[in-house]
Simulated scan of single mutants.
Amino acid sequence: MASKQIELTASTRTKHGKGASGRLRKTGRVPGIVYGHGVEPTALDVDALQLYHALHTDAGRNVLIRLEVEGETHLSIVKDLQRHAVRGDVMHVDFQAVSRDQQITAEIPVHLANEEDPRQNGGIINLVLYTVPLRVRPLEVPQEFVLDLAGTEIGDVRRMSDLADQLPEGAEFELEDDVTIVTITAPMSEEELDELAEGAGIEEDQAEPELVAEGDEPAEGGDEAEGGADAEGDGDADE
Rank of each mutant, 00 (worst) to 15 (best):
M1L: 13
M1Q: 13
A2N: 13
K4D: 13
K4H: 10
I6R: 13
L8F: 01
A10Y: 02
R13P: 03
K15L: 11
H16D: 07
K18C: 07
G19K: 11
S21F: 00
G22R: 15
G28H: 01
G28Q: 08
V34C: 04
V34S: 05
G36E: 03
V39M: 09
E40D: 12
P41G: 10
P41V: 07
P41A: 12
T42E: 08
T42I: 05
A43I: 02
A48M: 00
H53C: 03
H56L: 03
T57P: 02
G60W: 04
R61A: 09
N62W: 01
I65C: 04
I65Y: 01
R66A: 09
E68N: 15
E68G: 01
G71S: 07
T73Y: 03
L81K: 00
D89V: 05
H92G: 00
H92S: 04
V93N: 02
D94S: 07
D94Q: 08
R100G: 12
D101S: 13
Q102P: 01
I104A: 06
A106G: 06
A106K: 06
I108Q: 02
L112P: 00
A113T: 15
N114T: 06
E115Q: 14
E116A: 13
R119T: 14
N121V: 09
N121G: 13
I124N: 13
V128G: 07
L129Q: 14
V132I: 15
R137V: 03
P138Q: 08
P138L: 04
P142V: 14
V146Y: 04
V146T: 15
G151A: 10
T152L: 11
T152Q: 06
T152F: 01
E153W: 02
I154M: 08
R158A: 05
M160N: 04
D162G: 05
D162E: 12
L163T: 06
A164K: 14
Q166V: 07
A171E: 05
E172W: 00
F173C: 10
L175P: 02
E176A: 15
D177Y: 04
T183L: 01
T185W: 03
A186V: 08
E190L: 11
E192R: 08
L193Q: 14
A200F: 10
E204G: 01
D205N: 12
Q206N: 09
E210D: 11
A213F: 10
A219I: 10
D223A: 12
E224C: 06
E226T: 11
G227V: 13
G227D: 14
G228P: 00
A237L: 10
